[in-house]
Write a protein that binds this DNA or RNA. Sequence first.
DNA 1: GGGCCGAGCCAC
DNA 2: AAACGTGGCTCGGCCC
Length: 597
Amino acid sequence: MPELQLQQKTSYELIEEQSRLNEIARELKSAPVISLDVEVNSLDPHSAKLLLFQLAVPDKAYLFDARHLDLRPFQEVLGDEKILKIAQNAKFDYGMLKELVGIEIVNIFDTMLAERVLTCGLTKLGDLSLVSLSRKYLGLELSKEIRKTFENHLRDFTKKQLDYAATDVLVLFPIYEVQKARLEKERLEKIASLEFKLVPVVSEMELRGFLIDVERWRRAIDDYRRKAKEVDQKMQEELRPYSRATQKDLFGNHANVVNLNSPSQIMEAFRRVGLDLPSTGEEILARHDHPLAKLLLEYREYEKIISAFGDNLLAKINPKTGRIHPDYMQIGADTGRFACSNPNLQQIPTDSLFRSCFIASPDHKLVVADYSQIELRIMAELSEDPVFMKAFREDQDLHALTASQMFGIPLDQITKERRFQAKSINFGLMYGRGAKSLAAQLEVSEEESRQLLDKYFRQYHRVKTWLDSVAREAVRRGDSTTLGGRKRYYEKVTPADPNYERQASYIERQGKNTPIQGTSADITKMALVNIRQRIRKEKLDAVPIHTVHDEVVVEARTSVAERTAKIVKEEMERAGEELLKKVPVKVEVAVSDVWEH
DNA sequence: GGGCCGAGCCAC
DNA sequence: AAACGTGGCTCGGCCC
């Protein structure tokens, strides 16, 4: 079989004439399935040049010299809902074709996403490359060396380059065939289909990017820089008497005694002062009522923001667009959640000092919408706990209600502390949290913490049985499932394994959390797909530009912002109600000039 | 000078 | 330091 593929891969045609391109564009309209790929001289669609565009049917590849040809005739084929388009990491090709040609692909099968869906939890991201997939499914060793040579775009393409380009599209067919069968066998077609429909949303999210108020951001960071410096100097002075190092620099300034960013140096310096710590983590420092511990915590708070978000964020502004264009990894987490990087806009501090620096384009507004307590609602739905379900149906303050029922106190007499304890349990349970760790957070004894959990489970009996059941099943079956039909697989563990207890309890915690977190991801993804569809149907000037797990940010022209907000709310709730039948879904939406709720 | 890792910490 | 799920980023510190 691999030999046969090798034979087939060399069947290609290089097209340099527009008339021939037009002819093929007409012919391909009757093809049920095609594969596609692009070769470009840059990964940034805003500055890249399209060099080669590849299309294929199972036995032949067409290589179009994109430097000299008008690819727009392919709009009809690529935009045809009846023709399936196979691509590896389709987000990339979609973005390039949209930005550089103005073509939008519909009906996508992405071999990379398919593989991620099929092996979720078992594979590393590197295993998703076309090289890995070809090896796994075809026993074929691809070489990616040639790709780099596409940078020189003035010369004729070499035979090696053309072979490479043809192979890249031809291998997609046999890979697709096997993946398709496996998706059906594992009942993963539905979730894979959702992921495929999400590709254009994610690609457009990256293309559009987010506008930053640079001056405002600089002021916020400078403010933190000043504060950090003050604390740093204070600490150096406090620690200097205990240090042997007393050097001064050329200007007579004292050298720093300790690098506050180095945990090992901190540990050593603190020990000399008589502050002997097992670690310099936040928890430990907070527990010690020592002025130096307090100062260090303050320093870390400032330093973290400065280093992680300061100039580095501004450095990510694209010179061509003046905006931030992060990379969204569509199935970044094994639960199905997105991941975001370069920069990770999913970890911008919630403080409005920072979020308000993310702004709408001129003449635009931001529609910011998020689900209210979606994960707890999912836990209520999945566990079918009657008390939990009733609380959501009556739109009650769930944490206060939990406290009221646990402690037998009327709702209006719940103290902040009681509510906090109840809230900690509500959230903690979704992570598989135990009595010991709960005791640490609540600063009570392990025995008291155990009693709190007992009280909780007496009220929410079904929550306990559900959690125990999914935990057990995760270990026994080796997978977890979400309401959207997503699966997460776990490495097999056996009682014979010396680490069995530790591994099994880890899988148990993941088994409790994955159906909840994963279903939340399913819902947000369904919403994003439907929001885009509605926006296009009504021809609104609006586009999703960001998502943070249970939150969606859409940039809309001011004139249609209110209408967009209505659609976003409707579609998010509809997506939620598609999967949650026993519990209502609540979405809060705001229209604003900046990223805030 | 680059790659890797753990510590620490931001988000949900 | 470990304790409760999912990520990414920066740093120091180590390696080659």
